[in-house]
Design a protein around this nucleic acid. Sequence first.
DNA 1: AACTAGGATGTTT
DNA 2: AAACATCCTAGTT
Length: 330
Amino acid sequence: MSNPAEGTAFGSRISMTEDSHSILERSRSSADLWDMGDTKPSVETLERGVPGLYLSCFDMLLTEDTTWLVKVSEASSTQAVPMTRMEPREEPEQCPVIDSQEQGLSPGLEGQEEERSLEQVQSMVVGEVLKDIETACKLLNITPDPIEWNMGNVQKWLLWTEHLYRLPHAGKAFQELAGKDLCAMSEEEFRQRSPQCGDTLHAHLDIWKSAAWMKERCSVGDTKTTGSEELWSEADSSCSGQPIHLWQFLRELLLKPHNYGRCIRWLNKEKGIFKIEDSAHVARLWGLRKNRPAMNYDKLSRSIRQYYKKGIIRKPDVSQRLVYQFVHPV
DNA sequence: AACTAGGATGTTT
DNA sequence: AAACATCCTAGTT
């Protein structure tokens, strides 16, 4: 069986398909996600210095992680990509601390240095992509490997991708397809189903496929015969079979202030008192998780109110807007 | 305008 | 049947 190397995004080195390239390019301009207003640092800086790398894909796959570029070293070191260890004083790994300002990468790197830093950034890219895919998986409650998706998973992924990159709605064109079918489709078939953004979707899927492959290869070679599943499912609470409850979901968000602190946070963790800082945002996340695109805070809050009677959530003693309290804090 | 409370009813699992 | 999702009226901040 042949497996054309061109089929995978980072199959050989970092060479992405033409499509992956172009979509990532295109998406650069619409970096903000989901109307969240989260301003992300410009990617231009790094991209300019490292041609052929598509850092924007981080942006695309990220949810609302603002520390999007740094702290990759740990992630990458466990990944498949053999890394030329990151030297603390090397500059490429520091430069991601880009503030709202845009300034070119210092022009000092040439020749081997440039290649070295290129590899470093490559592994950073890979590590980030994997991490972001993982984040998306948790949010959508799907597996990272597209081949395992059922029809519902496929729709979720489509919705997510469309939303993230402001693509025209094409979910209907892929309605009756499971992940396996999707993966078997050529770019041409994608374009047939969706002339406007079929190529884009195909390229995105390509990235996911590649990530899954890498992950599998890595875990097989690394650990003995890992089920290749443990690494992804962090036993969050989402992998316990039954559909997630709203209160569980809220707990998950609260558990990750780094990711969601801007939309929901503890006021008093010991007492279980929390505040929803961005009601629309939280509702959107909930809708995404439950595959309910029409979800809003009106409906979400109604569901929270159902918890009053059940003694799961209540209003705190001093009732405040958008503030609730878990009756049984952990 | 956005949030709060809770009844009524439909939908999904 | 449980757990919402949806819709709605009425009162509050």
